[in-house]
Design a protein around this nucleic acid. Sequence first.
DNA 1: TCTCAATGTAAAGCTTGCTTTACATTTGAA
DNA 2: TTCAAATGTAAAGCAAGCTTTACATTGAGA
Lengths: 64, 64
Amino acid sequence: MKNNIKNLRATFNLTQGDLANRIEVSRQTINAIEKGKFDPSLPTAFRLAAVFRCTIEELFVYEP
Amino acid sequence: MKNNIKNLRATFNLTQGDLANRIEVSRQTINAIEKGKFDPSLPTAFRLAAVFRCTIEELFVYEP
DNA sequence: TCTCAATGTAAAGCTTGCTTTACATTTGAA
DNA sequence: TTCAAATGTAAAGCAAGCTTTACATTGAGA
């Protein structure tokens, strides 16, 4: 699963820590998701999409 | 997190077992998701949306 | 009514998402 | 150049997603 978080984060001028605070996860979680270490849970994906005012489909690219 | 899986499954004439096979999870997983026992992972949500040809946002309603 | 498919549910166990703590590396602004 | 903020990473531990096995309940058609 790929994602556009790093780019969007830059567009919105947010640090990993800022974003983490906004969606109430740890900074390490944001880092891990950006780095592709693991996929977020569905609730976390919804909160991320809400911050960037986009759909989950625009934020994440599913790869079988 | 609420979801419309049960309705859509009826519309598409699929049993829980059918749907489970389609997205390669166990029947119990489908049952648990329908019953709200837990939220699916993001990959599982993507596969569910693909079966019903809808978006994740149409399939799941996030509740903080 | 009988019966078989579909659904509900439970327990044990594995994997993954996420946390906290902690430290190293990179980067950019003064 | 230096120093602080931002990022990267790692380990241990808890919580959630999912599996397998197994059995009970519901429901609809013969």
